[in-house]
Every structure is written in C-alpha cells, then in structure tokens.
Design a protein around this nucleic acid. Structure first.
Length: 481
RNA sequence: CGGGGCGUAGCGCAGCCCGGUAGCGCGCUUCGUUCGGGACGAAGAGGUCGUGGGUUCAAAUCCCGCCGCCCCGACCA
C-alpha cells in the first residue's frame, strides 16, 4: 500500500522509523550533528502534548516560569554527582562578544542548578513553601548517538522544580507527578506505561530516587518516557536553600524535579505506527479528521465541495480538529495513502454518490484499507459519529498496545532463559536483589538494562534469580532506547 | 570513541572495477485528458558529482588528505 516508500517494521524497524517521520514531514535533520528541525506537523503534535500536560500541571497547583539558557559553569560544580553525571555531554561557551569569557558558560543540560540558585534567595520562611514551578524550555546534551525525537543534542521539554518543607511532601509530589505523566500517557497518548523506580545505576545524577514511566515500543525496546526525581536535600545543601520553620529551626528544603520531553513524540510514533506509516492517537492528533472530497466532472465539484463545507463546519463546531484536502492535483487514492502515512485517525470521503444520499464515508486509521471503511454515515450525525469513533480508536490503540506489551513481558527465573528472552527483543520480569556490579554485568552480557522496579509489587518478596539473594523485588529488564 | 555504510538534480538511486558529451525513477513547472485506494500524454526547468590536493591530453571515475551525515555498538531524557 505504501508502494515501498517506507521499509516495513519487521524488515528494518529503525529504517521504518526514520523514513516515516521524514515522509510524514514531521522532522528534518539539522545542519549540526544530532540536531533536528521539528516541522509544522511534528510541532503540532508536540503542542498538543504540551497543552494536555500544561493543563494537568496547572490543575495540580503548578505555575510556569522561565530561567536563562546560559548557566555559569561554577553552578554545575556545586553538586558533585550532578556535574559528574553531566560533564561529558555539556556544551560550553568559551567565547562571546569576540573575547574569551572569564568563566565558561554552559548551555543548560537541565536547570536544577540555576533554578536552585534562585530558590535559595526566594525561600526564607516555611510560608514560602512549597514552591511549585514548571518551565517549558530547550536543553542541550551533547550526545554521541542521536536519533530524531528519541535522542537529539538539543531537545524540548518541560522541567518541574519544586521545594517542600518535609521529605514526605517531596516524595508525595514526586509520585503525584509520575502519576500525572502516566495519566497523560494512557488517556491522551494511548500509550500503556509502567510506573516504576529506577535502579541506582540508572538514577538521575543528583537524585535520591528516580521514578519513570516506562513504555514498550513496537520493536520490543523500552523507552523511558517521562521521569520524576526525588532530589532529597542534595541541591538544597549545595545551594543553601534553607527556611525558618514553625519551630524556629533553620531547615533545608526537600526537592523534586520531573521532566517529559519531545522524546514522547517518538514514543507515540513507535507505539502506534504501522507499515503504512504513522497512527496518531486521536486526542493528540494534529488533525483528528481529514475530509477528502472526490469529484469526476466539473459539474459534480460544486455539490461535493458544498457538502464538504457543511460537514467540516459541523465537525469544527463540535470542537473536532478537522481539515479538508481540496488539492485537485492529486487523485483520491493518492490522498488516502498520504493521510494514512500521516496517521490521521478518521478520514471522511465525500463524493457524488454521497451527495446523492446526503451521507458520507468514514474510514478509521487503526484499520487501514477498505476494512476500516463504513459507508452511509448520515450527514446529520457526522459530529456525534466522529466523536464516538475518536474515542473508540483511542480505546482500541490502547488495548492493542497493552496486549502487545503484556505478550512480550516474560516471567523468567534463570539466566539462560533470561538471555533468550532478551535476544528475542522481549522484556524479562524477574525477582531482583543483585548488586550494581551484577546489574552492570547483565548489561554487558545481554545489553539489557533494568528498566524499572514497578511500583505495583506483590505483597511478598522473593529470591533474586541472578544472585540468589533474598528479599528481592520484581524488576523488568529489557533493551532500551 | 570502535565497527560498517554513504556523500552525483528537491528526494531515492545508477554511473566508478575498465578515465573520454552526467543519467534513471519520483517530485517540480505549463497545457490537455483524468479523479471512489498512490492516473496518463506532451512539452519543459533543474547538477561547480561533499571538499582540498595529486596523477593524466582528459577525473564523478584512479591516488592521498580532510569534512559531513546515516546505521550498528559502548554512554545518556
């Protein structure tokens, strides 16, 4: 159907991904290694991600602010683990204004340091807490191995940075925002995610605990799709963020940070896409409905376009994001394929036969080709039908992705089986209480990483499948992006 | 940073072994016929062959250097 325009996912998953996003005009490569241009169709998806998240942030009491892109290098150095974690991938500005700078300036890889520099000034009293700030920004990390959306040297994200009076409040905030991400992923992006805790090896540099929403892509690889960190008092101590509590004691604040990036766009593509191209989750799709008017003779054109106008207006009035493709330099069949490549959830076809019946044809993207078509949808019911279809498609995408994920998580209790499961691009679900070194050993031997310890654990503990240690937790291992 | 691949028209590629007028498909422009699953015809436009040097009467092609990008791995959202 795609006429060889894109490789099939089974033949060449990476090629499928790279070609699809370019053919669909989501992205172009930037002129500098590892950078990308997010084209209007890709950016529209990101804007819908932003809106859905921003609404949730506001609803949970957060406010937006903006901090500078340039950060003094000395700020990074204040937190030892943090600078150690990030220095390999920092972009440093050493010259500006035609002169060498007295102190090099880093382009932010994340904003903990600069934000906490200000928090130390803004926080005096327990009455100043909590601080619940989010920032939408770009960040730069000089990556060795890049891939559009999944890992680029510059990417867009939001980063929440909060400060609290008590440890419990910070832990609650960390998990609350993880829950917000999970809710967003499931209910907006139709991506089933597992909420979990990262291992020490995988933890954010400078965090006491890192939590993740972990998703399985169409090739079985894992993708950390959003993270939430409990920073403890590490940055509070490094930046001296203290407040006078109600008991008249000076105390360090407890902090969190949490982020979700344009990587989510990659997650959406790799979770739902098929061999015909993108499949957009209905609630985030730039266009939820595309209307393709069809006419044979000039005499039919007017009536077809009149009905197109009518249907488009009904959908728009119902709050549905709709567009119509009236370009007469392409045939209807060409347009069908093109909009399928772009993943629009619902296509409505309107031709002379439909005009005669005062009805239209609906086609759903999650069932490509003729199987997904339904004829004779009455014009009066287009808005209600479209709304219902969008919900159905969302549910069906989520159900399909959930089934795929669950089929590919295998319970494992010995290392040979573990290796076989990983080699088969699946995830292994195991009891784990091994050391960091043993976790590293598994990574070297199988290239699988500990994706997370799911928050949802059985009541009892088990015996570690690898070390034999008691008191093990359930962990998921798999290859990751 | 290791391994592999590729730089020739907007995109995808052939041409390179064996040096001699730069080609094909798609796309683009104009006109006409078309249009319910990637239409057809005609006429056009478009390339300092990544870059610097060397060999040669002559280099996309042979030799040396450099640069860039992609893919696979190690590090990371």
């Amino acid at each position: 159907m795609a006429e060889g325009k894109i490789p099939s996912r089974s033949d060449d998953y990476s090629g499928w991904y790279l070609r699809t996003i370019q053919e669909a005009k989501m992205v172009d490569y930037g002129p500098v290694k590892g950078t990308m241009v997010i084209r209007p169709y890709g950016y529209a998806l990101w804007e819908n991600v932003q809106q859905a998240l921003d609404t949730r942030f506001k609803a949970t009491g957060h406010v937006n602010a903006y901090f500078p892109l340039f950060i003094p290098y000395s700020f990074l150095q204040k937190e030892a683990e943090h600078v150690e974690g990030f220095s390999p991938e920092l972009a440093l500005v050493t010259h500006a204004g035609g002169e060498e700078l007295a102190e090099p300036v880093v382009v932010r890889p994340t904003s903990e340091t600069i934000i906490n520099h200000y928090y130390s000034q803004w926080v005096q009293s327990w009455r100043d807490l909590p601080i619940l700030i989010n920032q939408w920004a770009n960040v730069v990390r000089w990556e060795l191995r890049t891939r559009p959306f999944l890992r680029t040297s510059e990417f867009l994200w939001q980063e929440g940075h909060t400060a609290h009076a008590a440890f419990e409040e910070a832990e609650e905030e960390t998990l609350k925002m993880l829950g917000v991400y999970a809710d967003f992923a499931v209910n907006e992006a139709a991506i089933p995610v597992i909420q979990g805790r990262k291992s020490e090896n995988e933890r954010f540099a400078g965090a006491d605990n890192t939590y993740t929403i972990e998703a399985m892509m169409g090739d079985g690889k894992g993708l950390q799709s959003g993270t939430s960190h409990n920073l403890g008092q590490n940055f509070a101590k490094a930046f001296d963020i203290q407040f006078l509590d109600q008991d008249n004691e000076r105390k360090y604040v407890w902090q969190t940070s949490w982020g979700l990036s344009t990587r989510m766009v990659g997650a959406i593509i790799m979770t739902h896409g098929d061999d015909n191209g993108l499949v957009m989750p209905p609630r985030l799709a730039p266009h939820q409905v595309v209307i393709v008017p069809i006419w044979r003779k000039e005499s039919e054109r007017e009536a077809v376009l009149a009905l197109t106008d009518e249907v488009e207006a009904k959908l728009r009035d119902a709050g549905i994001r709709v567009t119509s493709d009236r370009d007469d330099s392409h045939t209807a069949g060409w347009k069908f394929n093109e909009w399928e490549l772009k993943g629009v959830p619902i296509r409505i076809e309107i031709g002379p036969r439909d005009v005669a019946k005062n009805a239209v044809v609906f086609a759903r993207r999650d069932r490509p080709g003729r199987e997904g078509k339904e004829f004779g949808i009455a014009v009066d019911s287009v808005a209600a039908t479209a709304q219902q279809w969008l919900d159905d498609i969302h549910d069906s995408l989520l159900a399909r992705a959930t089934a795929f994920r669950d089929e590919n998580i295998i319970d494992v209790d010995d290392y040979e089986q573990f290796k076989a499961v990983i080699a088969n691009n699946q995830w292994a679900r195991v009891w784990w209480a091994g050391s960091n070194a043993q976790e590293q050993q598994i990574k070297e031997e199988t290239s699988a990483t500990l994706r997370c310890f799911p928050l949802d654990q059985p009541d009892e503990r088990g015996i570690c499948f690898f070390s034999g240690n008691p008191n093990a937790e359930i962990a998921l291992f798999g290859k990751g992006y």
